[in-house]
Amino acid sequence: MSLTSIAALSTLERTGPRRITELAASEGVTQPSVTSLVAALVRVGYVERRGDPTDKRAVVVAITEAGSAYLGARRAVTAGIFADAVDQLSAEEAATLAAAVPVIERLRDLVERQRGAAQDQK
């Protein structure tokens, strides 16, 4: 699965159902690209199209239980890889990494705020 597909699934899991135009904007890709990506994700059962409750003419895309399960399994594998790598760090390197956690969390918060502000402007 492509990184764009995984990112789109993660966005849907984190933010809930979205219109294709909103998903395209949040992922920084064109609407036709997201339309194709969504079609592929529908075929494998990771997303579904639903009627937009606020506009009966529109459709939103939502992650399915299978899509959430796929992301969970993928994250578990990635977490295991990182855990193995951290185990190979020296005590000094591990301490440096631990000390960096608050800065990494702050960066994540800043990025989330910027994404929110960008979405609010659209």
Rank of each mutant, 00 (worst) to 15 (best):
A100P: 11
S10Y: 15
R113S: 05
A73S: 06
E22S: 12
T4K: 07
L3S: 15
V42H: 02
L12P: 05
E65N: 03
R74A: 01
E48F: 00
Q114R: 11
L89A: 07
V42E: 06
I6F: 13
T4S: 14
G16A: 08
Q88Y: 13
A79N: 07
I6V: 14
S68A: 12
L41Q: 04
A66S: 11
A85P: 00
A117D: 03
L110E: 03
S5C: 09
A95R: 10
L110Q: 11
S2E: 13
L71G: 01
G28T: 08
L41T: 04
R49G: 06
L12D: 01
D120W: 04
R50K: 14
Q114P: 03
T15C: 13
V29K: 07
L89C: 12
V34S: 09
L9W: 07
A73R: 08
A117E: 11
A99W: 06
G80Q: 10
I63E: 03
E105K: 12
P53E: 11
L9M: 01
Q114L: 10
R113D: 04
A25L: 03
Q114K: 10
T54I: 13
R57Y: 11
F82E: 07
V44I: 00
R18C: 08
L23V: 02
A95G: 00
R115C: 08
V42Q: 00
G80R: 07
A94Q: 13
Q119Y: 10
V103C: 10
G45H: 05
G51W: 00
A79I: 12
R75L: 12
E48Y: 00
A117C: 02
E27Q: 04
V59K: 14
D120P: 02
G28V: 06
V103F: 10
V61Q: 09
K122G: 15
A117R: 15
A24Q: 02
M1E: 12
T11R: 09
L107C: 03
R74T: 04
S90M: 08
R57N: 11
G51P: 05
Y70W: 02
L89G: 09
P32A: 13
E27Y: 01
E27S: 00
L41Y: 11
T96F: 12
L97F: 07
D55F: 04
G116V: 02
A24H: 09
L9Q: 09
R57E: 03
L12F: 05
R75Q: 10
G67W: 00
R19C: 01
L97R: 04
A94E: 14
